[in-house]
Structure formats: C-alpha cells, structure tokens
Simulated assay, not measured.
Amino acid sequence: MAPERSGGAAAPKLVATDLDGTLVRGDRSVSPRTAEVFRRLDKSGIVIVLVTGRPIRWLFGVYEQLGLRPLAICANGAATYDPVTDSIVHSVPLSAEALAEACARLRASVPGVVFAVERDGGRQMRHEPEFPVGPWEVNHESVAPASFAELLTRPAHKLLVRAGAQSPDEFTARVGACLAGVAEATNSSSSGMVEVSAVGVTKASALARVARGHAVEARDVVAFGDMPNDLPMLTWAGRGVAMVNGHPAVRAAAHDVTAATNEEDGVAAYLEALYRY
C-alpha cells in the first residue's frame, strides 16, 4: 500500500530526481540518509527514476551507494538505461546528419568552438583534441580524442559544445538560437558547456514515457532538480521541486523549493516529510 500524505491524500507514485547538485553531493557521494529514504520508497512500491545529464559510465557509483538499481534517464532524456539488464531500453540520438548540420552552423557562427559527442548512452565519449575534459576522464578507457570528421560518422546521444570561457545562460541561448529546428540546447553546469540533444528530447519527454509505462500520470509524479536542463521535467511533473541551491530560473518555475541543499540532504528531508518517514 502506497504511503499517504497528511490529510489522507495519496502521495506521489513516482519519484524522479536529478543527480548532480540535487541528490548527489559535491564530492560525488550519496549520503546514508538519502540512500535509506530511497530504499524505503522502493520497499513501499514507489517507482524511482534517476533523471540526469550524466552518461551511463557515470552512474555505477551512484547505484552502489544507493543500494538500488532504478531505471535511469541519461543524457538529458536521449537514453533510458536499465541497470538490471545493462541495456538501453529507449533511445533518441542525434542522427549523423543532424550532428553535421549542428556543428556546421556552430562553426560558422561561434569563434573557437570545439565539440565532443557522447555515444551509446554515454558509454563512450569522443572529443576533438582541443576540447577540455575533466581530470577524471583523462586516460579513461571510454574517452578518447578524435578528429572532427570522425565525430560525425555515427549518431550520438549528446553533442557537447564549448568555446572558451562563456556565460552559461547566454551561451546556451546563443547555441539554441543557432540550432533552432535542428536540435535542443541546454546546460547543467557553470562551466560554459552547452549540451545538445535531438529535437524534442528533454528530461520531461523521457520521463513522461517512463511514467506511461508504469500507468502513472504527471499529477502523481514528484521531481527534483537544480539546473536549466531540469526545467522541462519540473514543469511537467505534478510536483516539481527545485533545490534551494539551484539556478534562479529553476527555483522561480518550480512548484516548491527544498529547505536544504544537496550537501545537507535536501531531497531526503523533503521526501521524509512528504511520505511521513
């Protein structure tokens, strides 16, 4: 039997959460308190969905710390991953043609632009030699430099765009305007990197599909997030909750805001109150 909110109203049937800046702390850890709350949700029959911009290769530490293996929507909605079968169960990549068109438009209008692609749900990343990668990705077996031409030979779940130091919101708007009708542009960090997906692909579009598969309506979903790539999901869900440490636009658009940050178990505290744990 699903938990009830105070007053007898049924609590949400599906909990969807972003990872970085939301469920996961800055050191990439998941707190024991958070893991315990999610295990209780799972035992109560609540559907749990991780909804992230992360690639698949960055999920396994989260699964280990949670002690659960819920479905994960990766690459901002482009790939839905089932860790039980280690398979991508739904996929909406950028075609090679769309990649080529997007890169051509950006090369023509953005000085110094460089690219990387996430393939196979992010099991593999290929990047131009000039594209900066994080220290944890250097010499990673799934990450390698490639020529610009090689980046365009296969579909990709996400195109990553950088052009030196940029204002994240302004650069995302510029890239989005340049790619209108070709692809979706968003951002999830303060680094000035823009994340590009196929037209119509967002966290909301993928979560809606997963919810339908569980016969759950949007009104029965609570979703948590902190950055612009979470906005479609938070406005689609019946209860979209922004992190108090989140982007101002996300906090303004959400139905509710957590009382604590991701460093202080904000999602866990909210769920404990919502489900009366």
Rank of each mutant, 00 (worst) to 15 (best):
Trp236Arg: 11
Arg162Glu: 11
Glu130Val: 11
Arg28Met: 10
Leu99Cys: 11
Gly8Glu: 11
Ser6Thr: 09
Gly61Met: 01
Ala259Thr: 15
Gly134Gln: 10
Phe148Trp: 10
Leu274Asn: 06
Val216Glu: 02
Phe115Gly: 10
Pro228Asp: 09
Leu23Ser: 09
Phe171Ala: 14
Leu274Arg: 09
Ala173Gly: 13
Leu179Met: 13
Val222Cys: 11
Asp220Val: 10
Asn229Cys: 01
Ala156Gln: 03
Leu106Phe: 04
Asn139Lys: 08
Val47Ile: 11
Ala223His: 05
Arg40Trp: 00
Ser29His: 12
Ser190Gly: 15
Ala180Ser: 14
Val117Gly: 10
His140Val: 03
Val257Glu: 06
Thr235Lys: 07
Lys203Gln: 05
Glu101Trp: 00
Gly266Ala: 07
Ser29Glu: 12
Leu68Glu: 02
Thr172Leu: 10
Asp86Lys: 01
Ala173Tyr: 09
Asn262Trp: 02
Trp136Ile: 10
Val138Ser: 07
Leu159Glu: 01
Val51Thr: 14
Asp256Pro: 13
Phe60Asn: 08
Ala260Arg: 15
Gly77His: 03
Leu68Lys: 04
Met193Val: 15
Leu234Gly: 09
Leu271Tyr: 03
Ser167Ile: 02
Phe131Pro: 03
Leu106Ala: 03
Val84Asn: 07
Val244Ala: 15
Val51Gly: 06
Arg154Ser: 10
Glu217Leu: 14
His247Arg: 15
Tyr277Cys: 09
Ala249Phe: 05
Cys103Phe: 00
Arg251Ser: 05
Ala144Leu: 08
Ser142Gly: 10
Ala11Arg: 05
Lys158Leu: 00
Asp256Leu: 12
Ala273Ile: 00
Ile48Gln: 13
Arg276His: 12
Ala35Asn: 07
Tyr81Asn: 04
Met125Ser: 08
Tyr275Cys: 06
Glu217Trp: 00
Phe148Ile: 02
Thr153Gln: 13
Leu231Phe: 00
Cys103Tyr: 01
Leu160Tyr: 01
Ala9Gly: 13
Val47Cys: 06
Ser147Asp: 11
Asp20His: 13
Gly134Arg: 14
Arg276Lys: 11
Ala173Trp: 00
Met233Cys: 07
Thr153Ser: 12
Leu151Ser: 06
His90Gly: 09
Gly164Ser: 05
Arg251Tyr: 03
Thr34Lys: 04
Val15Met: 06
Gly53Gln: 05
Gln124Trp: 03
Pro129His: 06
Asp18Glu: 05
Arg123His: 08
Glu36Ala: 15
Asp42Ala: 15
Phe131Ile: 04
Arg209Cys: 00
